[in-house]
Simulated scan of single mutants.
Amino acid sequence: MKKVTIQDVAHKAGVSKSTVSQYLNQRFEYMGVETKEKIEIAIKELNYQPNILARSLKQKKTLTVGIIVANILHHYSTQVCRAIEDFFQGHNYHVIICNADDNPEKERKYIEMLRAKQVDGLIIVPTGENRELYKRLVAENYPLVFMDRKVEGININNVILNNRLAVHAAVFHFVEHGHKKIAMITRTPKVSVREERIKGYFEALEHHFLGNDVEFLRTTELENIQHEFARLMELKSPPTALLVGNDLVLMEVLKGVKKGRVAIPKQLSILTFDEVNFAELYDPPISTIAQPAYEMGTKAAELLLDQINGKQMEESRDYLFEGILHIRESIASLK
């Protein structure tokens, strides 16, 4: 069968090739409703498939962007990816999602692969370990946005949570309920988001004159979280409240709660970063610090598209979002 061309669509719709081209590129400023309808009907009846490769060469764009997340299992990551995909779908872009597993080598390979595919830009939750590669992308003015984490010395737009403020709010809530022995458990602080939360934790303890007991801070990898939680609860004077670093850490903590038969909230009050689907279904329902992940993903997508379109950007900066406390029955009052 003969391949249907843009000329065939123009002939059937009774318009010029340039008018069909304007329709395909969504330039509707001077196009009447009747003309749009004629072209749409012609495309459907002829089953016309635009030559995406040819259009990409003409526009010098592939209309594709890449996302590299640290761990796709995070509820936060899936929400962010959904927001970015929704935004770019609305602008006729395709999205390729890659999962780096917090592995710098995987991250490097994904960046190189996506560049080889000539994606128009990248949104990355960085491992922080590929500094020279990040610097090269910035030097080339390649459209790039970081999410969730900052990398010192890399001058680009960062879309992040105000982590220190969120931790201060969490500790304040514990203190309001009479807690003085407040612990925190999180993954090893290899990236900025964990470092900021730990700083916020010690700042908040100092602000409320609660001392600086390093025994109450536990940092380790996921496979050791249950062990560290058990050690925390075996202290001579164990904590009465626990701030959990993220949703994956929470899963391990709750396994430790079950194994150790720790009574929540009678024995230990819990508040965790990241809103998760089961938080309200757990018994008792878990208090959370929700990140506005969808809004953050949308903002990152907007910033990236502006760069792709060559919009004159202001000085690169941090776009800070505030966490939202969802207080449920996992926090007991000691007053």
Score class of each variant (00 low, 15 high):
R55N: 07
I41L: 10
E195N: 13
T5H: 11
M233G: 05
N157W: 00
E196G: 05
R197A: 11
S21L: 07
S77Q: 08
I225L: 01
M233D: 04
L304H: 10
D102I: 01
F146V: 00
N71P: 08
V214G: 00
A42N: 05
K38C: 02
Y201I: 05
G128Q: 10
E29M: 04
V69N: 15
A183H: 06
T35V: 07
L271F: 13
Q26E: 14
I198D: 15
R218K: 15
K109Y: 12
G14T: 06
Y23K: 04
V171A: 03
K255Q: 11
R328H: 10
A83V: 04
H94A: 08
E107S: 10
D247T: 00
S21R: 07
K60V: 01
K180R: 13
T35H: 00
L325N: 05
R55L: 02
L137F: 01
G211R: 04
E129T: 07
L165A: 14
E215G: 03
Y134T: 07
V262E: 07
V244D: 01
Y294M: 09
E295M: 12
I264W: 09
M31N: 00
I68C: 08
K311N: 12
R82G: 15
K61W: 02
A116G: 14
G323E: 10
L248E: 04
V193D: 15
N130D: 12
L248K: 03
L334Q: 13
L53A: 12
N163D: 15
P104V: 11
K58T: 06
H177F: 09
S16R: 13
S330A: 09
D318S: 13
V9I: 10
